[in-house]
Design a protein around this nucleic acid. Structure first.
Lengths: 233, 233
DNA sequence: TTAACCAAGTTGGTATACAATGATGGTATA
DNA sequence: TATACCATCATTGTATACCAACTTGGTTAA
């Protein structure tokens, strides 16, 4: 891989944010990051702008901050992800080869082995990204990946038991099976219920634990809903 | 509005690309743009990176270029836009107020007045963006806006007659009417057929005119379809 | 004691110098 | 005449100096 200062700074910052080493809401300064990232402001600034596009950093007044976790945004992302995935699954059924589906299925089956490893970070996320890639449409795949990136910090705030992992895996297997039998209706229904189940579990947990998590220093907010765009048209 | 060098450079470059003053495929250099944009490399570089995220510029070897028009990408974007808009319309029916829909409808009705003006650049695009904003979900609105940005250069390559504009306006009015009567099924069907009609007309025209357009210096390519992601999982 | 003001420090925004890396064109030699 | 090699130029990548704007803290005066 290319190893430019900007790429390194970007990767290091991104990892620190997703792992919550840099806590949600934390203030960042370009100069202050120089020592941590061992690079000068130019590549750091570029990295911050890239992360801004992914929704992981944002401008706060003059400076920067790690994007706080916003319950309203989580809801909106889940809603969007649901629509994208339901539409993508129809394309997957049209276009994915049996070999590809078999390969994906075997990856799911082997995933329990790495439950506790660092590579398990994305959890089921890897499955959903891989699935959406089978749509052969870059925009569905990128949308899915971007949505899961925005959600991925919340995974650390959830309780992930062995049972819940097994449950998710079961649902993933069911989805693949429906795709393999080219049953579009069933596949869409399964994706929908899987997505909504994940959403409900996540949102319930987050709002219950919100107070405790804020005490840890995490900025967890509930932004006002998007106002009517009347007049901005 | 804020008037930083970067913002100015970004806006000027974007306008030049969307108007085809900078032709698809044209090579750009950060230094070469300094005189045109009256700014130094730092803000120009930032602007190029922002445009890269919108798909309007891309890195070409060492340097930059205006993103060529890619027929495969146009197909993929249209496919994506269709899914996004069909899903968004359901949310609009849930959430949009009667007053908002009335306002949007009156805007469509008045649009023929500015048919030939610069503000008419986005054509029906403004309608679709405004409509998706009524979903009250930033991600649907941004996805719609981004998709139309990627498509907007092709509008210059189409023949836009008074009849075709009137036809589009009629369909827009029908969509609003369906939303106003909260008929989700009909609204979705209308959006779908409108989107597919636009897609088919555009793609047919582009492939027919491709040779002639290339003679004008426009880089119009047909990238290979996304290969199987097997093994990259 | 309180409030207002001023100064110093910190911030991102910008311009620019320098380094590293390809590209390109010309020249020399076979 | 053709080909290979070398030098020069143009390119982005990076570091850094400077600037303007804002924040913050202390100090001074009422």
């Amino acid at each position: 891989m290319e190893a430019s200062s900007e790429t390194n700074a970007y990767a290091a910052l991104r990892a620190a944010i997703l792992s919550l080493d840099l806590v949600p809401g934390e203030k960042l300064s370009e100069r202050g990051l120089e020592s941590m990232l061992e690079a000068s402001r130019t590549p750091i600034r570029a990295a911050l702008m890239r992360l801004e596009n992914e929704g992981l950093t944002q401008r706060a007044g003059r400076g920067w901050q790690v994007t706080p976790i916003d319950l309203a945004e989580v809801r909106a992302v889940m809603e969007y992800r649901e629509a994208v995935e339901v539409a993508a699954i129809a394309l997957v059924i049209e276009r994915a080869g049996d070999d590809e589906l078999t390969a994906l299925r075997s990856i799911i089956a082997s995933s329990p082995g790495k439950e506790n490893e660092e590579t398990g970070l994305r959890d089921g996320g890897d499955f959903h990204v891989a699935l959406s890639q089978l749509s052969r449409n870059k925009f569905f795949a990128d949308a899915m990946s971007g949505a899961l990136t925005r959600l991925s910090r919340t995974r650390w705030l959830e309780v992930r038991t062995a049972e819940s992992r097994a449950h998710a895996r079961t649902e993933h297997v069911e989805i693949i099976a429906a795709v393999q039998s080219r049953d579009a209706e069933r596949a869409a229904a399964l994706v929908l219920s899987h997505s909504r189940g994940t959403r409900d579990r996540l949102l319930n947990h987050l709002s219950e634990e919100r107070r405790r998590l804020r005490a840890r220093g995490y900025s967890i907010i509930e932004s006002s809903e998007t106002p009517s765009p009347l007049g901005t048209v």
